[in-house]
Design a protein around this nucleic acid. Structure first.
Length: 492
RNA sequence: GGCGUGUUCGUCUAGCGGCCUAGGACGCUGCCCUCUCAAGGCAGAGACCACGGGUUCAAAUCCCGUACACGCCA
């Protein structure tokens, strides 16, 4: 095991969306590739917006994607799920003592100070700065408060937040693995709040304290945090600890170029699960969104992804999420699946359509495997096998195009008689008998096969005819031939 | 408004000064295979490398500016 340690740190304020999943995946791949440690840390310090449901949604999503984490608090907790062993993720709300201790240290060393400014005072100062077209920046009025002044303010019942003392000049640079050196002018950075008046840590502060305590070596996160990084750099310096390496990933956009959001359709990982995507396909697709190999490889075996993933292959510019490619990938994954695995993956989707109970597993397995190369989503599976087990539903278009043709009814009548007399109802004899039938009638094979397919399955496209008929069984085939002819009689 | 980041086929991308009359993949079109639909195979259309200046014998690749997009802060 190398000493590389990374983390994924979502806020439980909603489901795990595509962007978050990509960040989690890249961290996970990086850890696996370098035999490092991957940590999941739930940033739940926003008590108003954090919910238990979001926590479970995040855990469910990660479990589905197969992103297992390696470490967590040792005390078991309810609903815990970890990769190896009985531990859950870290929760920031369980780590408040650490933030508190760090605040006290900074206060003691004079690197941070208490600020008693009220919201109203700050708003007024901000508006004034805006009017004067000066950069909006906290003016540091509480920087030099004496102990007596502080006591006096506290005696008035004033609450205080804690701010970090920032330099007024110079610059703060971040050496980003993906973007290179990014510099920020210190004159534009303000003494920012690290502990809120209500007592809780701010995002940047908790993040730095945890990343340090957890020994994080590489912070791989979304581009939206790049602007937070100089603040965090100052915190590392104030705390006297070396900063980790940073890698900021480009954003994922919707088809219209805006940041991917709900109005673009499905953005939750779990929605994709429900739509019939496979986690392998999702991982492969997400990996390709902002990362590539020098030869632009598209298809990856799960193991291959872990072996080849590299931060140097990460893209700086944002990527647009494209469902068409995801679907294609999903299809390739489905096609490679052993039949048993395909059936297992399709099970929930079959059950949802009432295609499970009371059906012999062997028949289901055979039916599901029949058109494997045509599925692009698992939700396609029930649609293609239902006619084997449920009543036929005739596709009007197929009836119109194939069945309602001159001479079809006599053809079906002939087939009915032929199949009724056929003893061995298996693929080879079936094909021989039917081809023989074609020859006798002087009909082209296609002119017989197509009506027969529609009559028996209700649709114009489907699996190889004879395999399908065999699986359907003699009784059903005859029954449906009758039904199809009745339909024709009604129609004419 | 300030700061930051980005800009190669519709989309994901290769490219890191000459191999680029820009390569691959999805999607699209056509052909082949074929009992249909797929899958597979083959072929094709599709990018004046955002724009404008430089630097250089030579730029998609380096530098500067502009535009646009996105993010963060307010």
């Amino acid at each position: 095991m190398s000493d590389i340690r990374v983390r994924f740190a979502p806020s439980p304020t909603g489901y795990l969306h595509i962007g978050g999943a990509r960040t989690a995946l890249f961290n996970w791949l990086f850890a696996r590739r370098h035999k490092g440690v991957f940590i999941l840390r739930i940033e739940d310090t926003d008590e108003v917006r954090s919910t238990e449901e979001s926590v479970s949604a995040i855990l469910d999503s990660m479990r589905w994607l197969g992103l297992d984490f390696d470490e967590g608090p040792t005390e078991p907790r309810a609903g815990a799920w970890g990769a190896r062993g009985d531990f859950g993720p870290y929760f920031q709300m369980e780590r408040l003592a650490h933030y508190q201790a760090a605040v006290e240290k900074l206060l003691r060393e004079g690197k941070a100070y208490r600020c008693y400014c009220s919201k109203e005072e700050l708003d007024a100062a901000r508006q004034k700065a805006q009017l004067e077209k000066r950069p909006v920046r906290y003016d540091g009025r509480c920087r030099g408060l004496s102990a007596q002044q502080r006591e006096a303010l506290e005696a008035q019942g004033r609450k205080f937040s804690v701010r970090l003392r920032m330099p007024d000049s110079g610059e703060t640079a971040v050496e980003d693995i993906i973007r290179g050196r990014v510099a920020f002018d210190n004159a534009l950075l303000q003494d920012f709040v690290i502990q809120k008046a209500a007592g809780g840590p701010t995002y940047n502060f908790a993040c730095v304290v945890d990343d340090h305590r957890m020994g994080i070596t590489h912070v791989i996160r979304g581009d939206e945090h790049l602007s937070n990084t100089p603040l965090q750099m100052r915190l590392y310096e104030a705390l006297g600890i070396p900063p980790p390496r940073f890698a900021h990933l480009s954003m994922i956009l919707g088809p219209d170029g805006a940041k991917l959001s709900k109005r673009h359709g499905a953005t939750s990982v779990l929605e994709y699960k429900a739509q019939g995507y496979l986690p392998e396909a999702m991982r492969n697709y997400l990996a390709l969104l902002g990362w590539s190999t020098p030869d632009s490889q598209q298809l990856f075996e799960p193991r291959e992804l872990m072996e080849k993933f590299d931060l140097s292959g990460c893209q700086k510019n944002p990527a647009t999420f494209d469902t068409a490619k995801l679907q294609w990938l999903n299809g390739t994954v489905i096609r490679k699946l052993p039949k048993e695995s395909l059936l297992a993956a399709a099970e929930p989707f079959l059950k949802a359509e009432g295609l499970w109970e009371g059906i012999a597993r062997e028949r289901l397995l055979a039916a599901v495997g029949l058109e494997q190369e045509k599925y692009s989503l698992l939700t396609d599976v029930p649609k293609r096998v239902d006619f084997f087990f449920k009543d036929v539903v005739y596709d009007p278009k197929a009836v119109e195009k194939v069945l309602k043709k001159e001479g079809v009814d006599p053809l079906l009548e002939g087939l009915e008689a032929l199949l009724l007399g056929l003893g061995d109802f298996t693929q080879m004899p079936l094909e021989a008998a039917i081809r023989d039938f074609c020859a006798q009638r002087g009909a082209k094979a296609a002119a017989v096969f197509h009506p027969l397919r529609v009559a028996v399955s209700g649709r114009a496209e489907g699996a190889t005819l004879f395999v399908m008929i065999e699986l359907l069984g003699k009784a059903k085939v005859l029954e449906r031939l009758g039904k199809a002819r009745k339909q024709l009689a009604v129609a004419s």
